[in-house]
Amino acid sequence: MGPYLIRRLLIALPSLLGISLILFTVLALAPGDPFEELATNPNIPPEVRANLRAKFGIDDPVLVRYVRWLAAMAQGDWGFSFASRINVDTLILQRVPTTLFIVGSSQILALAIALPIGIYAATRPYSIFDQIANTLAFVGFSLPTFFTGLLFILVFSVTLDWLPFVYRSDLAATGWRWYWEMFRQSIMPIMVLALFQAASYTRYVRSAVLDVVRLDYVTTARAKGLGEKTVTLRHVTRNALIPVVTLVALQMPAVFGGAIVTEQIFRVPGIGSLLISAILANDTPVIMAVTFVFSCLVVLFNLIADLLYGWLDPRISYN
């Protein structure tokens, strides 16, 4: 396990480098310039401006700047936010836990919905339950998250007035009250993401179980006299989960994309909303760092998926 993990990390590293190089080049080629403000300010003489540009190396070739950025990043210097006037790493560290909380709980909820429904539907293919589940899944992943979010606000906040539609990080309540308020305000963002993901996961689970259920070893398990429940849960599900894990890992970029949208709708102070405000403020260091953190999270979840394979499927050896 240990050596495999190290090798896998070594494979992940070049792709992270590739991703960051692409991101950096896009940012570098863009016309926006953080020194634009200085250029139009008549109180700053052109020599000072030129000196500043030389000091920050803005006119160097892209690759040189990329290497410099990478070296600084590796040493823990993530730059300074132009807009918020604090270090980028503190800014991101404030925001990441919220995003991870929302994304993590929505994924768990999505799997908790998708697994039972998908397995049950697959063990009774083309039954009424299967058809209803299939139709609902189609409806679910055809509903874009921004529309479900607005619908939820319309129904639960505007019409019924049950839930708050703005997520606040500075809740006034304490103790149990705090947990209750936290639950009330996070249920809508989490549900929006979870329902969308659950819809596509249900389809994956169903087709994966259908592929496995006809195999000979399942017949053997039944012939041994095992109950239907044991066969489905212990023999079928475990093997069916292997392709599902791959697909869940492949969905990660889309999940974090959905998180940006929900964070924007419910004003959740996560890294998604930070990215949008940074883009609008042309705050280059923050944009670069946030997109890089997004890529790191995606690569990290792919890594976790690879490790899960070994746990699910003993045939895969890590040597």
């Binding site: 016309p31 994309g257 890529s295 690569v299």
Partner: peptide
């Protein structure tokens, strides 16, 4: 590599910048 790019952030970025 393209599959593990964060699509939406990149999309937002490119469109806003160019």
């Amino acid at each position: 590599l393209f599959l593990s790019l964060p699509q939406l952030p990149l999309l937002l970025l490119v469109i806003y910048l160019f």
